[in-house]
Amino acid sequence: MIRDITIGQYYPAKSVIHRLDPRVKIICTLLFLISLFIQRSVLGYGAATVFLGLVIYMSRVPLGFILKGLKPIIMLLLITVLFTLFLTREGQELVHFWIFRITDKGLEITVYTAIRLIYLIMGSSIMTFTTTPNSLTDGIESVLHPLNKIKVPVHEVAMMMSIALRFIPILLEETDKIMKAQIARGADLESGNIIQRAKAMIPILVPLFVSAFRRANDLAMAMESRCYHGGEGRTKMKPLVYKTRDYLAYMINVVYVLLVFFIGRFVSFHIWIF
């Protein structure tokens, strides 16, 4: 089950997209997401499709792998689709039964909403698929850096993220060990109703928390002993530096967004799908 969730994973490959500066990927992804919301024409969506398709092609992440990432949101997608489909009242009525009615306008909005949602997930997963958690953290820290001025602890948050990334596998392994140890003492984790099962988790959660705190304590000590004192006066081993390809990526992205913007603004003709 957990293995099926591909959102947020890293897909190792050697592509131009993988090599881009994480800041470029973060900002361009954001712009792409915005572009999805400023358009309402077939042409606009066509541009988004071409742009997304091109990026996916260049990233060398298999399309199937990206589509698998959509699995966990199918329910959400269905609910959204059904709601917009049945609750839109404007436009010409196409079908009517009992209290439901489907209008042409509703159908149009529904199709667009679905595409928008799917592209949203695909767009952001392309970012995580092509960026290691580390450089993503670096990128976020750098992009959010201006927030430092309003006292947002950007460096600390980024540090916390990267520590979490380091310790998640360790804690997963630990959970497995503790579970086995308690099962060896006859713990029954599988049967019973929800309350019994929740209760059965106590012998696993308590040791896990104790261990997590011990690790946190040790780690804090180790960091201090290596002269960690927050982000101030710190240099970077791998500072983010823009290269030509990064500027190029920005340019292409800006051109795309402007295109979408003008399509939405000035191209007035509507091509109805049917």
């Binding site: 990267s162 990334l165 780690l219 180790a222 290596r226 240099t235 081993m237």
Partner: peptide
């Protein structure tokens, strides 16, 4: 602390 060996070794000098 680091998620990659070399980044961990670089942690002290960075500080």
């Amino acid at each position: 602390i680091g998620t990659v060996v070399e980044e961990d070794v670089g942690f002290g000098p960075e500080n």
